[in-house]
């Protein structure tokens, strides 16, 4: 029972981590919360769904397609809602509002185009169940875990080792300093937003597979969870987002398994509040980084 729930919790949590990473990357580089991230996630889920059910492509191809659509939406979001505000050095609240605008727009478009009812992925992956000791793990879960953890590992490596990854970290520390070192910071910002959005879109497909349901409102609830993880892990902290997501997923699954199913969100968020009482800067956040920055 325990091990089984742990696997289920980690599977769910790894998708939360992926969503939170999107928030974290953008928060790191731009110091803003992208309120449209959840809706880009939802568009990713629909893209994957359409590719899998209408074009009968392999699930990995569907994820790739979702990632492309997500990145493209990210690039448009940056151009339309973020860059015009950045030029004018306005208050931090302005991009918050403009991204909320984009999120409402995207959700309305989704309602119009895809309809309000929940849709399911074709059952090509279902059925296969592996038994490992006390645990049963489905093929879908294996795919989700592999993709989510694989992407997180690649991202870590990319940020730590590659030239562009380092430029992204430098831009995150200070746009001005990165600029005088020769980094085209506008390009890095576009890249960051599209990367974050692509990851979010893939997470959309993974979550669609987890619950076998894709609907226009899924962005909202997932967006809130991603935000919670961003705060739990420590604003702008990559490691924090990864562990924060896993912790939230495991907490949710355990509260369902041990009898509090109607309180799953209450238990999970209650736990986050408790953790924040003890560590207001989040699990991995540095003290001086909380708040203002």
């Amino acid at each position: 029972m325990f091990w089984q729930q742990l696997v289920n919790g980690l599977t769910l949590g790894s998708t939360y981590s992926l969503v939170a990473l999107g928030y974290t990357l953008i928060m790191g580089v731009l110091d803003i919360v992208n309120m449209a991230h959840g809706e880009i996630f939802m568009f990713g889920a629909f893209t994957g769904l359409i590719l899998a059910s209408h074009f009968h492509v392999n699930i990995f191809v569907a994820m790739l397609g979702a990632a492309l659509v997500g990145s493209l939406l990210g690039i448009i979001l940056e151009r339309v809602a973020l860059r015009p505000l950045r030029r004018r050095a306005v208050s931090h609240l302005a991009p918050l509002i403009s991204t909320i605008g984009v999120s409402i727009f995207l959700e309305s478009v989704a309602l119009k185009v895809f309809g309000p009812e929940s849709q399911a992925f074709p059952q090509t992956l279902a059925g296969k169940i592996y038994t490992i000791g006390p645990m049963q793990i489905s093929l879908v879960q294996v795919v989700i875990l592999a993709v989510a953890f694989g992407l997180m590992l690649i991202l870590r490596f990319w940020l730590a080792r590659t030239k562009i990854g380092k430029a992204l970290r430098a831009t995150a520390e200070s746009t001005e300093t990165a600029g005088i070192l020769g980094v085209n910071t506008n390009l890095i910002i576009v890249l960051t937003v599209s990367l974050a959005s692509g990851l979010g879109a893939i997470a959309g497909v993974l979550v669609g597979l987890t619950f076998n349901a894709v609907e226009p409102t899924m962005g909202m609830s997932m967006g809130l969870k991603g935000l919670a993880v961003l705060i739990l892990g420590g604003m702008g902290n990559i490691t924090g987002a990864m562990f924060g997501g896993l912790i939230l997923g495991v907490a949710e699954v355990f509260s369902v398994a041990y009898g509090a199913s109607s309180y799953r969100d209450a238990v999970a968020f209650g736990m986050i509040i408790l953790i924040l009482f003890v560590r207001p800067q989040g699990l991995f956040g540095a003290k001086d980084q909380t708040g203002g920055r």
């Binding site: 005088i180 070192l181 980094v183």
Partner: peptide, 24 residues
């Protein structure tokens, strides 16, 4: 010109207050 283009021409600034990348 934007900073990165100026750097490309061969102009480098050691800024006031050093501006070291603290987390790198």
């Amino acid at each position: 010109w934007p900073s990165h283009k100026v750097v490309g021409l061969g102009v480098s600034l050691v800024p006031e207050g050093r501006r070291i990348l603290a987390r790198m």
